[in-house]
Nucleic acid binder design. Sequence first.
DNA 1: GCCAACGTTGGC
DNA 2: GCCAACGTTGGC
Length: 156
Amino acid sequence: MSHWLLKSEPDVFGYPDLERVGREPWNGVRNYQARNFLRQMAVGDPCLFYHSRSKTPGIAGVARVTRAAYPDDLQFDPANAYFDATSDPQQPRWSMVEVQAVRAFPEVLTLEAVRALPQWGTSPLTRKGSRLSVLPVTAEQFGAALTAAGLDANSL
DNA sequence: GCCAACGTTGGC
DNA sequence: GCCAACGTTGGC
């Protein structure tokens, strides 16, 4: 089992939105490195849900992968902002997974608080200028984030 | 293959 | 809203 972190802008789609809808296709990823991570995700993998471009950037909750990578349909919709005219339907370029809300953090674990966790020193998340929107986290990083948020990793 | 220009991300 | 950092594009 692998652990992941997904970034989302709460003004567009925040953790409360995921709780409201239950399951959500994680579409619109248009970065090769992030896409490759999406393709490595397995059903059941836990994900930290991160709020970016927010007044208080940080981890808002835990999600879980409910469907492994499949073609992102937005790439074939000319009316959609994520349309990619050069993607071959026989060999779709972009993938998405489906995720489900698992548990909200009691309060957002701020980026500042994440940076203070020694396990996170090597993560792209805490590196200045990092724009990777889907990234792997170690089990240690995942556990440390849950503990810092006041949750028991075994209670998920 | 290089690299400047551009558009986007994301913390502040 | 600002701007540094980044990934992508396209001229050469």
